[in-house]
Design a protein around this nucleic acid. Sequence first.
DNA 1: TATATTTGCTTAAACGTTTAAGCAAATATA
DNA 2: TATATTTGCTTAAACGTTTAAGCAAATATA
Lengths: 347, 347
Amino acid sequence: MTNKKKPTIKDIAKVLNISAAAVSKALHDDPRISEKTKLAVKKVSKDLNYQPNHLASALRKGKSKLVGVIVPKTNSHFFSSVIQSMETVLNKEGYNIIITQSNESYKKECDNIDTLLFTQVDGIIASMANETTDLEYFEKIKSKGIPLILFDRGENNLNVDYIGINDYDSSHMIVEHLVKQGCKRIAHIGGYRHTRIFNNRIRGYIDAIKKHELPFERTFLVESSLTTEDGRVKMSELLALKNRPDAVYVAGDYAALGALQVLNERGIDIPNDIALVGFGNEPFTSMVTPAISSVNQHSAEIGKQAAQTFLAHTKKTVVRQKLNKIILNAELIVRHSSNIQEKPIIV
Amino acid sequence: MTNKKKPTIKDIAKVLNISAAAVSKALHDDPRISEKTKLAVKKVSKDLNYQPNHLASALRKGKSKLVGVIVPKTNSHFFSSVIQSMETVLNKEGYNIIITQSNESYKKECDNIDTLLFTQVDGIIASMANETTDLEYFEKIKSKGIPLILFDRGENNLNVDYIGINDYDSSHMIVEHLVKQGCKRIAHIGGYRHTRIFNNRIRGYIDAIKKHELPFERTFLVESSLTTEDGRVKMSELLALKNRPDAVYVAGDYAALGALQVLNERGIDIPNDIALVGFGNEPFTSMVTPAISSVNQHSAEIGKQAAQTFLAHTKKTVVRQKLNKIILNAELIVRHSSNIQEKPIIV
DNA sequence: TATATTTGCTTAAACGTTTAAGCAAATATA
DNA sequence: TATATTTGCTTAAACGTTTAAGCAAATATA
């Protein structure tokens, strides 16, 4: 069948009776090759349906033009749109990306790192799994001299470039919004403390509570894996308290969805009995009833900045500049679940 | 900084005073190498933190061990879970996948194909963009002798392996379900006819309508891009008819969501006034109010079969067997939006 | 003990590029 | 016209593997 092997630079050279080196240079528009030869080479290259062998040039140049990406899951609007925007920026510069998923598992994340290193990627852009606390594998990337850029789920101790939003300020923004709605007993279902972003959201929550002189109750601050299922569990726990909160700020939309389900099932009025705010602005927040207020993390911008940070590394000479920490401001999207004024009190 | 270049097979050879070839063989457990040498090689390899250069071995072997994947978007539960399941199967055999998105654009899809061919992938697994009608680029893949496997959005004319569900039967299943609910005027918001799966759903719908001796009305069959936005538009059009349908079967969940929004906004009772069924079983179908009935496409199974079909190609010798067409049976998940019995008629 | 076989390596070439170094012919400069 | 420079290529080596072919030493067989 179609078993003719792919044409190489040498085949073109043979046709034109010139050297392979000349062909390579002609294809790259080297100024030392005559226009006449360039045209001839390009014509033959087209006729033979020549496609450069990326493997060979990558090997020779020591650059694979591949960037590895590790995310907890692609199946989330946030991550998939970060990836899409990275792709746009990187493709323009001739880079391709290899996407891998950790599924929030530390072991899978380590496997992914090995895979990407093996594939000779020129850099790795990652958002860490929930489980990850041991940074040995990320150190491994650094020790190989391969640029590592973290986004969203990062780590301060790792000393690498980071792109994310201001989680501490976002918590302040949310608490302030809830206070304005008249809420006085605000609970927080937060993520794992060992993860920097969730820790910052927790710190922001505590400080904002104090700032507004609200009572800080230990039982109002719970740690969660932030899955939908755990959101249900943690919401149920809050409802079991003698003194229920009148607002719940959940550090992730999936968990907020779980909380919403529980509240709806028990016939609790959202937002009048309990107001609800999520985090991440996943599309479903506007689809459910009532629509969930949430924080827009500017995923496209994060992806773009992460890609550009990587590109800066590749263009940099050996002089290692200081770390690039980019912190964007997030935006609170107020929807029905926390918009108490919206509902005219027609009792 | 960390600027020591990566150790190669030659460095290991130098330490042990043997040839690079012996090292290569030892690392691959060649039977002609003594156990003693193998152990020594593996030890030094570990000590030096050696990682084989995938580029070099791929070039030499003529196999990149990369599989290219093209999907309309990763940001859909269906595609991301197909990918995840393909990844599991392929990783086990030492393959990595490069994921690209066409964003439903023909141009982007062609670019993706070029990119993947350039990266020297060993095969391509794809689901076609909505826009795609010209198959020239897919022919290009075939003409290079690279295995091409299509799933979900395929094409009969292309003569390549295909994995998908039985769309024709699924339509029958849906219509039958709606008839059992007492619906008599069933409309269909379908996808583009030129896409095989949507065409099959349309044919199934028409034949099922006839089979149940329901009136087939031209106006009840509309063609749509199946985005949420277009779902809204097409639903509004159906509502504008003098003789409204009492059930709408939408060929995609995102469009079904748009339809649901319009119905909710106009205060139309779902399912009693109009029953609604979607397609794809995206997670949000169970989150919205009312929850949308939908068809589960067994994404994990599709991904697994697609990956295995590719692997079968790589193991095959030159003997080209006949095409592999795998058609799975889908499953209808009945939810509130079409479950009329569920609501006890307490008027 | 003489020959055959097996073991455990080495040598050399190859995969398809890129690039430093070099060289002859053409052109510019003095 | 003699020398210097530029132009447009070629030659050769390299990137890091793998693998076919070969060979000496060790072992088995007759």
